[in-house]
Computed example of a mutant assay.
Amino acid sequence: MADLSNMRVLMLATDGFEEAELFDPRQALLDAGVQVTLASIKTDPIQGVVNDDEKGKTITPDLTLDAVDTQDFDALVLPGGVGNPDKMRLQERALEIVEEFMDDDKIVAAICHAPWLLVEADVVDGRQVTSWPSVRTDLENAGADVVDEQVVVDDNLITSRKPDDIPAFNKAIIEALTQVASTND
């Protein structure tokens, strides 16, 4: 396996993130040697949820959205939950971050409800994606080709449906980072 210690991943989240969709990919990336940075609206601890209805763990972001320089990162990971992407897609800087990663052809990975950010940033037209069922019409209306699969990789864009798919989602992200790392060597 390639050395991923120089790879840097940015995660965006705020209150209402699905606990497993932030903590599990984050841990898989850390275990692979990747440097992970969490950005949010503020640097106060953010509240996770479990199945969108009970409080989960909290985590303290490393920096605010306004402090993010996308040139410092190789990939962007967007956890779901209903409240998290719904709040995040109202943040102009969050949408700019998604657009910058896509414009630079960097890895963008979104799970569950997180593709709402992709819709709002207008980056899914003509792309094959998947998501939580209630987000699929929004994706189709934005021009995406929506399929019902554990994980969909369309060039630099990785999407996944739900917490049960996290192992496949993590594997796809790490494989994509491995490809980038091997081309940088």
Results as ranks from 00 to 15, higher is better:
Asp86Cys: 05
Gly81Lys: 10
Pro115Cys: 09
Ala75Thr: 05
Asp69Ala: 14
Arg93Trp: 01
Gly83Thr: 04
Trp116Ser: 01
Gly83His: 09
Thr70Tyr: 06
Ile59Cys: 03
Cys112Tyr: 11
Cys112Lys: 08
Cys112Pro: 10
Asp69Arg: 13
Ile97Asp: 01
Leu65Ala: 05
Ala67Gln: 15
Leu63Thr: 11
Met102Trp: 01
Ile97Pro: 01
Asp72Val: 06
Asp104Phe: 00
Val98Cys: 06
Ala109Tyr: 02
Leu63Cys: 15
Asn84Asp: 14
Lys106Thr: 02
Ala75Ser: 10
Ile59Thr: 14
Asp66His: 12
Pro115Met: 10
Thr60Asp: 01
Leu90Asn: 13
Arg93Thr: 14
Ala114Val: 07
Leu118Asp: 06
Trp116Ile: 05
Ala110Lys: 03
Leu65Trp: 04
Ile111Asn: 09
Leu117Trp: 07
Gln91Ala: 14
Asp62Lys: 08
Ala110Asn: 08
Thr70Val: 15
Leu118Arg: 07
Leu76Met: 11
Lys106Ser: 09
Gly81Glu: 10
His113Cys: 05
Ala67His: 04
Trp116Tyr: 12
Asp104Lys: 15
Thr58Cys: 08
Thr70Arg: 01
Asp104His: 12
Ile59Gln: 10
Glu99Arg: 15
Val98Ser: 06
Asp66Lys: 14
Thr64Trp: 08
Val77Ala: 13
Val77Thr: 13
Gly83Lys: 11
Val98Ala: 10
Ala110Trp: 04
Asp105Tyr: 09
Lys106Cys: 09
Pro61His: 10
Ala75Cys: 11
Ala94Leu: 08
Asp74Asn: 15
Asp105Pro: 00
Gly80Glu: 07
Ala110Pro: 10
Ala109Leu: 06
Leu65Gly: 03
Glu99Leu: 04
Glu96Cys: 00
Val108Met: 07
Lys87Gly: 02
Asn84Trp: 09
Ala109Pro: 08
Gln71Tyr: 02
His113Lys: 06
Ala75Ile: 04
Leu78Lys: 06
Ala110Cys: 09
Glu99Cys: 00
Glu100Leu: 06
Met102Glu: 14
Asp74Gly: 12
Ala110Asp: 08
Ala67Lys: 14
Ile97Gly: 01
Val68Trp: 05
Leu90Arg: 14
Leu95Met: 12
Val82Thr: 11
Asp104Leu: 10
Gln91Asn: 10
Ala67Gly: 01
Ile59His: 04
Val108Tyr: 03
Gly83Ser: 13
Ala75Lys: 04
Glu92Ile: 03
Gln71Ile: 01
Trp116Ala: 06
Ile111Tyr: 10
Thr70Gly: 03
Asp105Ser: 14
Leu63Val: 09
Trp116Thr: 00
Arg93Leu: 02
Leu63Ser: 06
Lys106Leu: 13
Asp72Tyr: 02
Ala110Gly: 12
